[in-house]
């Protein structure tokens, strides 16, 4: 196993194209246990953290740009980002311990392909796009389309994510991410729920997004719930519809971390709670982005 640390996207791309068995990594928090457990044995380890673009965090009038290898602690400790996207920030702050968050990244969390990845529902409800680099050039893909199945992505073996783009949140918009774990920390989500709502001047919901993690082979959107929320104030009746729609969309498995029945039931609970928190935040963010 050889270690390589390219300093540019181009260098990384050509390295990946010329190595039959290369593994890109950012924080290596998933890659190391996988190699150690014998689940993969790449010939070349390509460290993306030495490429400036991949560890940047910037914003302009239109969007935030988050380098795919940027440590998640940079997001949680960035007040501007965390105020605008508290849901993404809190999801990033749930990926493992402080030790892990010094290293873990949105790119790694997404490309690991886990349906339980905490940041993915939060990124999805915020319409996040991934800029993917490869030998044939760059392409921009919606985050919801990156993961195609457990451990599988739409990336070719010589491609990697450079950065994420998140459009600036309009006023009266709030997001939230909640997860259920048996402990308070250091667990994989049994169920995760990301929500985002935008309110009209009258306080009713004009746009809504809801995504669930760990309840299906990939993170899923709950479109029925999103539609039900439009035009409402997320009153109790609507939330009941949201919860039912969330439970309905689940296609989970029984595994060591949770049962089908539990995941379905708690998906509804977390969906409801996440929407309520997003509502509260939306009400507080009146124009002062």
């Amino acid at each position: 196993m050889k270690y390589a640390a390219p300093s540019s996207v181009e260098e990384a791309t050509s390295l990946l194209s010329s190595s039959p068995s290369a593994q890109v990594f950012a924080g290596a928090t998933d890659v190391v246990p996988q190699i150690r457990g014998g689940r993969q044995a790449p010939e070349v380890l390509v460290d993306l953290k030495k490429i400036d673009q991949l560890v940047a965090l910037t914003s302009d009038d239109k969007k935030w740009t988050v380098g795919a290898a940027t440590p998640t602690v940079d997001l949680t400790e960035n007040p501007g980002f965390s105020q605008e996207f508290p849901g993404i920030s809190e999801a990033a702050g749930l990926i493992g311990s402080d030790q892990i968050q010094s290293r873990s990244s949105l790119g790694g969390n997404l490309c690991n392909g886990s349906p339980a990845a905490d940041s993915v529902p939060a990124m999805m409800v915020n319409g996040t796009r991934a800029l993917i680099a490869g030998p044939k050039g760059n392409r921009l893909v919606d985050v919801s389309e990156v993961v195609t199945g457990p451990g599988q992505t739409c990336l070719d073996s010589d491609e990697f994510i450079v950065e994420f783009e998140i459009d600036r949140a309009p006023s009266l918009t709030g997001d939230a991410y909640l997860r259920m774990i048996p402990r308070t920390e250091m667990d994989i989500a049994v169920v995760g729920a990301g929500a985002r709502v935008t309110l009209g001047e009258d306080g009713t919901i004009t746009a809504a997004a809801l995504a669930l993690g760990a309840v299906a082979p990939t993170v899923v959107r709950v479109t029925a719930a999103e539609e039900a929320l439009i035009g409402t104030t997320a009153d109790e009746d609507t939330l009941a519809v949201v919860a039912a729609a969330a439970s309905e969309v689940c296609n989970p498995i029984d595994d060591k971390r949770g049962t089908i029945g539990y995941r379905e039931q708690v998906a509804g609970v977390l969906a409801k709670r996440a929407v309520l928190i997003a509502m509260e935040r939306a009400q507080q963010r009146n124009g002062n982005v």
């Binding site: 402990r183 308070t184 994989i188 971390r257």
Partner: peptide, 16 residues
């Protein structure tokens, strides 16, 4: 054994 790791064996952490 399906959970031979501290991650999945779930011993109490300080915040619990």
């Amino acid at each position: 054994m399906e959970n031979p790791s501290f991650l999945d064996y779930r011993m109490p952490v300080a915040s619990d």
